[in-house]
């Protein structure tokens, strides 16, 4: 009997209608209005690569050990170095990173023994040209500088 009444009076449909009706409050809105509101990414987010420099001396932290280039599955890091005769150590000359082929797996960040190469929280890496996606040492140290749209 109840089942018949529930069928005839469309109870299940009205239940569904009530669920959607309940959601019409502004506090439930889940949209982020990009670019005015940028998403907050986590600390460990694997975003744009950055070559860190020592905060005081301004020298690069990279010791040109080439471990990141060896571990990269796509072989897109090229590290060149030259030997400094005075300190008898390798010094970094160029560091090329191809962000267009990078899959942001984080293996290079894990491999770096001195935390020089780090994947930061920047995710806006678009560029107008293919060559613009291949980052040299200077771009890696500065990081991408996305346009901020503020009214």
């Amino acid at each position: 009997m109840w089942k018949f009444l529930r069928t005839v009076l469309l109870v299940d449909l009205i239940q569904g209608l009530w669920v959607t009706f309940r959601y019409q409050q502004p506090k439930y809105i889940y949209t982020e209005q990009y670019p005015a509101q940028r998403p907050q990414v986590a600390e460990r987010y694997r975003g744009a690569p950055r070559l860190n420099i020592h905060p005081e001396s301004g020298q690069t932290l990279c010791i040109a050990c080439d471990l990141c280039a060896l571990i990269c599955p796509e072989n897109l890091i090229v590290v060149t170095s030259e030997r400094n005769e005075q300190t008898r150590r390798k010094e970094l000359t160029t560091f090329t990173y191809d962000t267009s082929r990078c899959m942001f797996c984080g293996l290079c960040e894990d491999a770096c023994p001195v935390d020089a190469l780090e994947l930061t929280q920047d995710f806006e890496l678009a560029s107008y040209t293919r060559e613009g996606a291949i980052w040299d040492r200077q771009m890696l140290e500065e990081g991408p500088l996305p346009k901020q749209y503020v009214r």
Partner: peptide, 8 residues
């Protein structure tokens, strides 16, 4: 519809 779908 956007209201029901928790968007704007």
């Amino acid at each position: 519809l956007a209201d029901y779908q928790v968007r704007l």
